[in-house]
């Protein structure tokens, strides 16, 4: 009896491991097919433009709000932490570094994953279950080129731009708290921000954003493209897209931080 339970446990663990590797393999093949199709004609410029607006323009409010409040909170927290020192310098520096290196890319990534990853998975999932993706193939149109490539490229292009805007708004949030709540000198605060500003901080944040853009759109498309089982399948695909993208964003955030700053 005991050994039977032990074997059932081994069976379950084995299944989970096998399923994980099978899913990773499928995702890898999906990603490589997407990358290959990026270099094949025709390129659907209109679809690409529509995705740039959808991912970039319509995500701006949510990214602006989250980075603004993140910058404000960091200014307040840093001031409390450094209250025994002269705080103007550290507050400006900590706001600058934390917003550009971490907060703007991660917050923007997670917000866009919730907004765009979910909508892509739902849209493509519905197209799959209503046979629209099959219809594309019968109309001599490669679904990867028509549906996936414009979305993934738009994600890679727009996320860094969103993060750049998020950087500016986040730093402004810190400035507002610094000047109007903590009553720092405005010109000194700005001078400190400018002094500590390094191109590497901005570049690393934007590079992270490009990787996050790829992860969000790829997983949104992958989960939608292979969804099955009607409405329930589409719902599952949407959940999987957001959860898996969010986890991968946090994992890759660590890996990229290691690459940029620890090596």
């Amino acid at each position: 009896m005991k050994s039977e339970i032990r074997w059932q446990f081994v069976d379950k663990v084995g299944r989970v491991v096998l399923n994980f590797f099978a899913a990773a393999g499928r995702l890898g093949l999906f990603a490589s097919e997407t990358l290959i199709q990026c270099f094949h004609r025709p390129f659907y410029l209109k679809a690409f433009g529509a995705q740039l607006i959808e991912i970039g323009f319509y995500s701006l409010p949510v990214v602006a709000l989250t980075t603004l409040f993140s910058g404000m909170v960091i200014a307040l927290q840093t001031y409390t932490g450094f209250s025994s020192f002269s705080s103007e310098g550290p507050v400006a520096m900590v706001v600058l570094i934390s917003v550009t290196r971490e907060l703007a890319p991660v917050m923007a990534g997670l917000m866009v994953a919730g907004r765009i990853g979910a909508s892509m998975a739902a849209e493509l999932g519905t197209m799959r279950v209503t046979e629209q993706i099959d219809a594309l193939t019968t109309l001599s149109t490669n679904p990867f080129r028509y549906l996936i490539v414009p979305r993934v490229l738009a994600g890679i292009v727009m996320l860094p731009i969103l993060v750049l805007i998020g950087d500016i708004i986040g730093i402004c949030g810190g400035y507002l708290i610094g000047i109007y709540k903590l009553e720092f000198n405005a010109s000194t605060y700005l001078m400190n921000t400018w002094t500590y500003l390094q191109a590497m901080d901005i570049v690393s944040g934007m590079t992270k954003a490009a990787v996050f853009g790829f992860i969000i759109t790829l997983l949104g498309c992958y989960n939608g493209f292979y969804s099955k089982g009607g409405a329930q399948g589409v719902g599952q695909a949407t959940t999987n897209a957001v959860v898996s993208a969010s986890i991968l964003i946090l994992i890759f955030n660590y890996i990229l931080t290691e690459v940029f700053f620890a090596l």
């Binding site: 519905t126 197209m127 209503t130 046979e131 629209q132 099959d134 219809a135 019968t138």
Partner: peptide, 11 residues
């Protein structure tokens, strides 16, 4: 040419 069961028109 193909007529799908659900028509499969692009929304």
């Amino acid at each position: 040419g193909m007529l799908f069961q659900s028509a499969a028109l692009f929304d």
